[in-house]
C-alpha cells in the first residue's frame, strides 16, 4: 500500500500531470465564461431566429420565414446604409490615429499627457459618452457656443441632431472621438516594436519624416493596421450606442441595431430580431473575408509576399524568359 501511494503521489507530482492540471485549471474559467455567456446565448439566439415568438408566451416554428422577411423588409437594409457614414468615419479615425501615433512614438514634449488625454474617451462608458454629446450638440450649448466664438452666426448653424443632412455625421463624429485614442495606442505599441537602428540608418541615408513612415513604419505595422480596419468596419456595421442614446434613432438616424432593438422590444418580434442579428453576423463575416483577401492581394500576410506583387514578378520573369528565348533564336 505504502509503495502504491508513494507512486501515486509521485505520479501526481510528476511534470506530466502538473502540466495538464495547470492547463485545465487555467482554461476552466475563461472557457466556462465564454461558453456560458457567449456560445450558449448565441446558440439560443440562432434557435430563436427560426421561431415566431415573444419574450413570454408560446413559440411557433416558422423555418426560414424570419430570414425572408429580413431580406424583403425595407427598413433593415435601409438602416444598413447608415453604416457608410460610420465606415467613412472609421477611416478618418484610423488616419488620425496613425498620424498621432507616428508623432507620439518619438520623443515629443508632453507626449505622455497627450497619449493619456487621447486615450481617455475610450475608458468612458458608451452611455455616458452619449449623454455628453447630447448636451454638446444641443442648440446653443457647447458646440454652438464655440462656433459662435469663431464668428459663426447661430441662425446659420444647423440643428446638429435634427437636420437629416448632418445628424448622422454628428453621431459618427462622436464615435471618432471615442475610439481614436484606442486605435492610436495600438499603433504606438506596434511602432515601438520597430528596431530603432533602422531609423538611425535611414536618417544617415537622408530620409525625411514621410520616407521613414512610408518605408519603415508602414511595412512594419501593416498587420495592426489591417486588424484595426477589420475591427472598425465590423464596428461600423453594428453601431448602436451613439444613435440609441443620443437620438433614439429618430430623424433618420436609426441604424441596423436600433431597428433590431425596436423590433425585439417594442413590437415583441424576437424571432425576427434574432434573424436580423444572424444576418448581420453573416455580413460581418463577408466583410472580413473581403478585407482579408484585399490584404493578401495588396499587402501580403504572415511573411508571404503580396499576391499582386508575386504575379507581377512572375509576369516579368515570363517576359524575360520569352525575350531570352527570342534572343536565343
Amino acid at each position: 500500500m505504502a509503495r502504491e501511494k508513494s507512486s501515486f503521489i509521485r505520479w501526481i507530482q510528476s511534470g506530466k500531470v502538473n502540466k495538464r492540471l495547470c492547463m485545465i485549471t487555467f482554461m476552466l474559467f475563461p472557457l466556462t465564461l465564454l461558453v456560458v455567456f457567449t456560445y450558449i446565448p448565441f446558440l439560443k439566439m440562432f434557435q430563436f431566429s427560426f421561431y415566431e415568438m415573444k419574450y413570454i408566451g408560446d413559440r411557433e416554428f416558422v423555418g426560414w420565414e424570419n430570414y425572408l422577411e429580413v431580406f424583403t423588409r425595407e427598413d433593415c437594409f435601409q438602416a444598413l446604409k447608415l453604416s457608410l457614414y460610420y465606415i467613412v468615419a472609421s477611416f478618418i479615425q484610423l488616419a488620425l490615429a496613425l498620424w498621432f501615433a507616428s508623432i507620439l512614438s518619438f520623443k515629443t514634449r508632453g507626449g505622455g499627457i497627450f497619449k493619456g488625454f487621447m486615450f481617455f474617451p475610450y475608458l468612458v462608458c458608451g452611455i455616458a459618452v452619449g449623454f455628453i454629446f447630447k448636451f454638446f450638440y444641443t442648440r446653443g450649448f457647447v458646440l454652438d457656443t464655440i462656433l459662435q466664438w469663431i464668428g459663426f452666426n447661430l441662425d446659420n448653424l444647423p440643428y446638429w441632431l435634427r437636420d437629416r443632412s448632418v445628424n448622422n455625421i454628428s453621431l459618427a463624429a462622436s464615435s471618432i472621438w471615442r475610439y481614436m485614442g484606442q486605435n492610436m495606442v495600438l499603433f504606438i505599441g506596434a511602432i515601438m516594436s520597430v528596431d530603432s537602428t533602422l531609423y538611425e540608418a535611414a536618417a544617415i541615408d537622408g530620409a525625411n519624416g514621410w520616407a521613414k513612415f512610408r518605408y519603415i513604419i508602414f511595412p512594419s505595422i501593416k498587420t495592426i493596421i489591417v486588424l484595426n480596419m477589420i475591427l472598425a468596419i465590423s464596428g461600423s456595421l453594428s453601431v448602436f450606442e451613439p444613435p440609441y442614446v443620443i437620438t433614439g434613432g429618430s430623424f433618420g438616424t436609426g441604424t441596423y441595431f436600433v431597428v433590431m432593438n425596436e423590433l425585439a422590444h417594442e413590437s415583441q418580434k424576437v424571432g425576427l430580431a434574432s434573424a436580423m442579428a444572424i444576418v448581420l453576423l453573416g455580413l460581418i463575416f463577408i466583410a472580413t473575408m473581403i478585407q482579408k483577401f484585399v490584404e493578401a492581394y495588396f499587402l501580403g500576410t504572415n511573411g508571404k509576399e503580396a499576391i499582386r506583387y508575386v504575379r507581377k514578378q512572375k509576369k516579368i520573369e515570363a517576359q524575360h524568359a520569352a525575350q531570352a528565348a527570342k534572343g536565343g533564336r
Partner: peptide
C-alpha cells in the same frame, strides 16, 4: 398592434414619426 409595428400605447412610434415628418 405588435404585428403592425405601429406600437400604439407601446412605443409611441406614430407620434414620433409625426413630429419628425412635421419638422422637415
Amino acid at each position: 398592434n405588435n404585428e403592425s409595428e405601429l406600437g400604439i400605447n407601446v412605443s409611441g412610434a406614430i407620434a414620433k414619426e409625426i413630429v419628425e415628418s412635421a419638422f422637415d
